[in-house]
Design a protein around this nucleic acid. Structure first.
Length: 562
RNA sequence: GCGGAUAUGAUCUAGUGGUUAUGAUCGUAGCUUCCCAAGCUAUGCACCCGGGUUCGAAUCCCGGUAUCCGCACCA
């Protein structure tokens, strides 16, 4: 008889189960393991794929975003422009008295460089005045080099978002130059965590699903807002939890705009649909001082863990024009969008047309620069000559070298940098939370019993297929049923070992929602028993309808109400 | 990164400076078994890594790695 070990908490038990049954376990353990790296085993990989595809059904199908894939390896310039190089790399010193760390740049108020400050070694703790020690670099990005010999500095990406921003001009074309539109990416991100202590909740290489939705800042409404505005959001303002409809939340300015509220609702729907327990779910608004360097308003979807308390699993941020502006400035690429006027606007303007056949021979190699200067010259009144400055040298150009024309200029719209609303999902955290929220245990016939109540559409294995006993007549029928179900796209496990109860228990432990048993009656009446994991109720159904019957069950997912 | 503790099959665990390292779960093969972890037989699998002390180290010591706890970090 196995006893429940009371000294273990849910986290310990889940990690044990996850390792034993092939969900998640530490990577490279035969070489000592690496903190913050985990393998997804056979069941974990299936589960993850189901979660990611469920996510796609919300963001790709329901919201109509485009999915792209960009490299994880990212040149230095990209992350310099995005602010990650500066924001992720901190020179820090510790206070032995207060047991806290400080950024050196916050401590050095004078004009010294950080290196000089370290060299002088005279920094004191702002709280207690103790001499600060142990200067060290805190760099949360993995640095690497691209190429052999002549190399380029690069990092493994800390988020997937930058790959979307750097292709914005092409994606804007793909979206037929209309806003809003969203682009999503599912993939790996990398952060060299100082001490990744919380298992799958803080990994150094992790899976994320991000959506970047581009808006005209003058209109952050969402087309489908009216369809969902009466739904409730579970909100927490750092003081109290509350339930507000989307409509109320936006009207009362609890949430800044429709788009943010809409994506919060999409996020909430996805998580509850995946099997997160509503009472262990909330949106928490970031205080001003905890927001990321790029964010304007940020809400976290937090999920509750028995061991860790409320954990951020999704961040929904209004990143405003921060990223695109940075890339426009750093790369010089035109990443503006156009807000079309209802009618094209015509304006009369006086324009200088340089005569190159005169300018060329006269000014030789300076002619090009003069041409450009003339074209940019703002005409105040008509004169016989214009003075332009080339390399700090005034040059007087007479009116023989140019012509002033009055032209009608047509402007069809106004250029602007789109704003971005970004829902960013930590897939691994969500998967751990699903395990924890759906884990059940108890004693059954003096034995410890585990069950994971995954919702059928996320469960890695959809059905077990068992001959009631290990008899050739039954096993051959069972194997045929098993094969044809898999050919119908239903992931099954065939099992003929041990008693039927043991096989049910094995399936319960990995969250398989249904089991099909073939008995001797099946040979004559062509029916099998289908057993429900949560109720253990059994029903007999014809063999030739198993596939459609199961598919109905797997697809008829009820919405979770809050 | 700092301080403390821990490390035995896939999982949980007993134990010891000296033959073949304990038990359970588990896997495999077989017997048995007509619906919720029955039983029997056979069999498989382990002392985290490196160094030191010792005639002999899985056991003692040191270092590393990993995990857990506290502090710091987590844009």
């Amino acid at each position: 008889m196995r006893k429940i070990n009371m000294s273990l908490d849910v986290y310990d038990k889940i990690l044990m189960l996850a390792k034993r049954r092939g969900f998640i376990y530490p990577s490279y353990e035969i070489y000592g393991g690496v903190a913050g790296l985990f393998d997804y085993g056979p069941l974990g990989a299936q589960l993850k794929q189901n979660i990611e595809n469920l996510w796609r059904s919300y963001f790709l199908l329901q919201d109509g975003c485009f999915e792209i894939h960009t490299p994880t390896m990212t040149p230095f310039e990209v992350l310099k422009a995005s602010g990650h190089v500066d924001e992720f790399t901190d020179l820090t010193v510790d206070c032995p008295q207060c047991a806290t760390s400080f950024k050196v740049e916050d401590i050095t108020k004078d004009s010294r460089t950080l290196e000089e400050a370290i060299q002088a070694d005279d920094m004191n703790c702002p709280t207690c005045g103790t001499k600060l020690i142990n200067p060290h670099q805190v760099n949360l990005m993995f640095a690497t080099k691209i190429g052999i010999g002549k190399t380029r500095d690069a990092f493994l990406r800390p988020e997937t978002a930058q790959g979307i921003f750097t292709g914005f001009h092409l994606l804007y074309r793909y979206a037929r130059e209309k806003l809003p539109f969203g682009v999503v990416q599912l993939g790996k991100g990398y952060r060299n965590e100082v001490s990744p202590r919380q298992g799958p909740l803080r990994m150094r290489e992790f899976s994320m699903a991000e959506a970047e939705v581009f808006f005209d800042p003058s209109n952050k409404n969402h087309e489908r807002f009216a369809f969902v505005e009466d739904n409730m959001l579970l909100l927490f303002d750092n003081e109290k939890e509350m339930k507000l409809s989307l409509k109320e939340a936006v009207e009362k300015k609890v949430i800044k705009n429709q788009a943010l509220a809409y994506y919060m609702f999409l996020t909430q729907s996805f998580l509850l649909d995946a099997g997160v327990k509503p009472e262990k779910f909330r949106f928490r608004k970031h205080a001003d001082d905890e927001m990321a360097h790029y964010a304007q308003e940020c809400w976290d979807a937090e999920l509750y863990s028995e061991r860790f308390g409320w954990v951020e699993c999704v961040g929904i941020a209004d990143r405003s024009a921060y990223d695109l502006s940075s890339h426009i400035n750093s790369s010089g690429t035109d990443m503006y969008a156009l807000r079309r006027y209802d009618e094209p606007q015509l304006t009369k303007r006086k324009k200088i047309i340089p005569k190159m056949n005169v300018l060329g021979p006269l000014y030789m190699q300076k002619a090009g620069a003069i041409k450009e200067a003339l074209e940019n010259y703002v005409i105040t009144d008509e004169t016989d000559e214009i003075t332009v400055e080339i390399n700090n040298e005034p040059i007087v150009v007479s009116s023989e070298s140019y012509e002033i024309k009055e032209v009608m200029e047509k402007e069809i719209g106004e250029k602007f940098v789109p704003h971005v609303i970004e829902p960013s999902f930590g897939i691994d955290r969500i998967i751990y939370m699903l395990l924890e929220h759906n884990y059940k245990e108890g004693i059954k016939n003096d034995e410890e019993y585990h069950l994971i109540s995954f919702r059928p559409h996320v469960a890695p294995v959809k059905t077990g297929v068992f001959p009631l006993i290990n008899d050739d007549k039954l096993t051959s029928v069972a194997k045929n049923i098993d094969f044809s179900l898999r050919m119908d796209g239903i992931y099954t496990v065939y099992d003929d070992a041990g008693t039927i109860g043991r096989r049910y228990a094995r399936m319960d432990e990995i969250g398989t929602p249904y089991c099909i048993t073939i008995d001797f009656d099946s040979l004559s009446d062509k029916k099998v028993t289908i057993r429900d994991r949560d109720t253990t109720e059994q029903k007999r159904i014809p063999i030739d309808s198993i596939s459609t019957y199961l598919k109905d069950l797997l697809e008829s997912k009820e919405k979770v109400r809050v």
